[in-house]
């Protein structure tokens, strides 16, 4: 199933990625290859296999509602490109 350049641009926009014309072409080609590979899987006969959303056979893995120590703030903010003593800084979000 060939992917269109428009679809690639759309996905890039959703991820807030700016792609050059060349990159768009490259990704269109690469992603199409991946989708073709996935398509091959569709040829497997799954008539006898019930639809399923999970590969793990486990179910109901819980934790009790207990508080654990959080990370120290200095560690949390440690790798941030932009920050102050308390907050992460991100480019100004307009609206919302």
């Amino acid at each position: 199933m060939p992917l269109s350049k428009e679809q690639v641009k759309h996905v890039a926009r959703l991820a807030r990625l700016k792609l050059s014309l060349k990159e768009t072409e490259e990704y269109t080609r690469e992603l199409t290859t991946i989708l073709n590979y996935i398509d091959q899987l569709k040829s497997v006969n799954t008539e006898e296999v019930p639809a399923w959303n999970q590969s793990a056979t486990m179910e109901n893995v819980f934790r009790e509602d207990e508080i654990r120590l959080s990370l120290p703030r200095e560690k949390v903010l440690g790798n941030a490109a932009n920050r102050d003593d308390e907050y992460f800084h991100v480019p100004r979000v307009i609206g919302r």
Partner: peptide, 21 residues
């Protein structure tokens, strides 16, 4: 008491970014 997928305290009005993991 704690968050939905981790043990950080689910609380409001605490110092910013002090309840994360």
């Amino acid at each position: 008491n704690s968050k939905i997928f981790c043990g950080c305290k689910a609380s409001y009005g605490e110092p910013p970014n002090s309840l994360t993991c």
